[in-house]
């Protein structure tokens, strides 16, 4: 999935537009000039947060089909598979974070902007099902532009049916930690993203229901730069906390430790 870039290559930071050497982005893919983060692939995210070699992917053998025969969808799916090296926008499995077992789910924006469709929805329901069955905490890294239009109402109905699966999981009394990463929008934001015991965001994440551009065209005023930014949401009381990428594994590990059953301590 990941490949190391050739030494000495440069690319432009999408935020401050300064040219940055590949090596300067570092392990956490952070711009040395403006400190913004690059979006991660699922594999990169897993490498950053789980204990070394502890991730065991749960393969589900599902393929997304263009059942509604929407123009260009087949082509978009093929390109997304090519670009991401994945079969869909979400990877799940078991892992250890700071020596504690969890069910982990990671969305990948390289696959059609992490949009929620029937397959991604089914994968998330499986994640909650498996976590409940094995009594494991859930850690979800969310990154999505919202519902995938090409599957119409079937995408929309993932929002309520995922929450049904989540309620079943909640009966197992295991903790759920949702980490909102860039971007967390639309039908994903308005369903499972905000339904967790902990809802935190990675710093510099855009979070919202309606898109910034849509709001900009409707409203007459210029939107402030911090609008829909994670820190701005935290100030409005909508997030438990905003965490730097380098602190993420420690933060999650601490929350997990605080929710361990007494007998296992």
């Amino acid at each position: 999935m990941s490949h190391s870039p050739a030494k000495g290559t440069w690319n432009k930071c999408p935020f401050c537009h300064v040219h940055v050497n590949q090596l300067e982005w570092g392990f956490y893919k952070q711009c040395p000039h403006c400190h913004h983060y690059l979006r991660l692939t699922a594999q990169q995210r897993i490498n950053q947060v789980v204990d070394k070699n502890s991730f065991k992917q749960l393969e589900l053998n599902m393929t997304t089909l263009n059942q509604l025969k929407v123009p260009e969808y087949d082509d978009k799916l093929a390109k997304a598979k090519d670009k991401s090296g994945l079969t869909e926008a979400m990877v799940i499995g078991t892992a250890q974070i700071k020596s504690q077992r969890v069910m982990l789910g990671v969305m990948d924006t390289n696959f059609m902007m992490g949009t929620l469709n029937t397959t991604v929805g089914e994968i998330i329901k499986q994640l909650y099902f498996e976590a409940a069955k094995h009594k494991l905490p859930v850690v979800l890294f969310i990154a999505s532009g919202g519902a995938r239009m090409q599957e119409g109402i079937y995408s929309l109905l993932q929002m309520n049916t995922i929450l049904n699966a989540k309620r079943n999981f909640d009966q197992s009394k295991q903790v759920s930690i949702n980490v909102l990463t860039d971007p967390t929008m639309g039908g994903v934001s308005a369903s499972f993203a905000f339904e967790g015991d902990f809802v935190i965001a990675e710093k510099y994440t855009q979070i919202g229901f309606a898109g910034r551009r849509v709001i900009e065209t409707i409203s007459t005023e210029k939107l402030p730069i911090e609008f829909q930014d994670a820190d701005h949401l935290k100030q409005h009381g909508l997030l438990d906390d905003v965490i730097e990428r380098s602190e993420m594994a420690d933060y999650i590990g601490r929350i997990l430790k605080l929710h361990q059953e007494e007998s296992s301590c």
């Binding site: 934001s189 308005a190 905000f194 919202g208 229901f209 309606a210 829909q228 701005h232």
Partner: peptide
Amino acid sequence: SENHGQSQ
């Protein structure tokens, strides 16, 4: 609506 937590 965004600042008041429409998603939530």
